[in-house]
Design a binder for these strands. Sequence first.
RNA 1: GGACAGGUGGCCGAGCGGUCAAUGGCAACAGACUGUAAAUCUGUCGGGCGCAGCCCUACGAAGGUUCAAAUCCUUCCCUGUCCA
Length: 404
Amino acid sequence: MNVNQSLALIRQGTAEIIGEAELAAKLKTGKLLKVKYGADPSAPDLHLGHTVVLRKLRQLQEMGHTVQFLIGDFTSLIGDPSGRSATRPPMTPEEIQVNAQTYQDQVFKILLPEKTEVVFNSRWCQPMNFSDVIRLAGRYTVARIMERDDFQKRYQAGRPIGLHELLYPLIQGYDSVVLRSDLELCGTDQIFNCLVARALQVDDGQEPEAIIAMPLLEGLDGVNKMSKSLGNTIGITETAQDIYGKVMSIPDELMMKYFELLTDIPVDELKKMLLDWESGQLHPRKLKARLAHTLVAQYHTLQAANQAEQEFDRIFTNSELPREIPEKVLARTILHDGKLWIVRLLHDTGLVSSKSEAQRMLRQGAVQVNQQKIKDAELDVPITDGTVIQVGKRKFVKIKLTSG
RNA sequence: GGACAGGUGGCCGAGCGGUCAAUGGCAACAGACUGUAAAUCUGUCGGGCGCAGCCCUACGAAGGUUCAAAUCCUUCCCUGUCCA
């Protein structure tokens, strides 16, 4: 593969490349690049949003380049001193260790271990003293820091910005200085930090790293970027059934983007799919089912994907009971004449969080016992071993009675 | 240090003495419909009670005024803006 071909491949699916000329020049020398990627150990579970960037990294690895997988343990160690953001409490070194391990285990579902160098930024951040920090801070200006969209918006909206937050881009930039990175990958929301890295590298007498920014993947709501704090993620370690179902629940408009950024299906084929969909030859449901199937197969197995698909059709298309229903043990002694009040039943099986909710669900017609809809909140229902209770479309429980 | 503006349910945001468990939006959940856990429409959405009703706990915190407080007063905590 010559340099132009590699560049074309690298460019695929990216949102923006900064310093492309330098990148091309470096590639021409045949040099193998050090590609930095920063990860936050506070939320170690990978979701499809992460995989957009990880897949690009994998592609670069296959070209021979090395990934510097940087775990930003230092900032997690400090936490967020303003105490405002509950999502960033300081973490203990042990927690970080555990999370980092989880992270690595998951990351190697995509990255090649032999081409990955895992580094922790506490290694060089921790020993810095206050004068080091001041010196570092002196290498950038307030005006330039405030260019960041996020800061600007918050400032204009009169929202608090902790002083330490202004320092975070500097820390990340400094990481690149220490690692002498040639290229950094990130989501478009992180471009600012990478730009700081370039400036600091130049200040240090290095060549600035190139930046490849990948598009942000919208989550289940179809609007916001996929992120754990928004609860709109599809995690790669989730069950086959959940991944399948969640993918089926994304808005139709998002399908092609998911195909493009998350699967290996060639661009030409995707184009054809889109045409067929638009012309009405291909039903959108089928298209989405293929997406769901492909993604499950990617993170589980082909077999699991087939099964998940069957199960999904079973439950939602044919409204049948799932193949496997979680069992819930109930003591026979709470029954009266083999019966139990429906509200209590729903509550005790954990299908609803309160009895008031049970009442509501009954009123709304969401409750079924052995496939029979129940609306009467006064009813005592006969319970036997294997009675199946359902609330809504997705919650099922099978009763197991004990004599105790 | 001074002046001013704020802190309300998972989030955003109304209310500014009684009719407030608190309008509205988002999220969530349910139902209908369908092509899916898409879209759309409708409904629910603090907790308890065998529940068209009643009872608890809630509007930054603690006290107070009042028959009655999210709403008024005092102190404290927190946030922002401007001035220094």
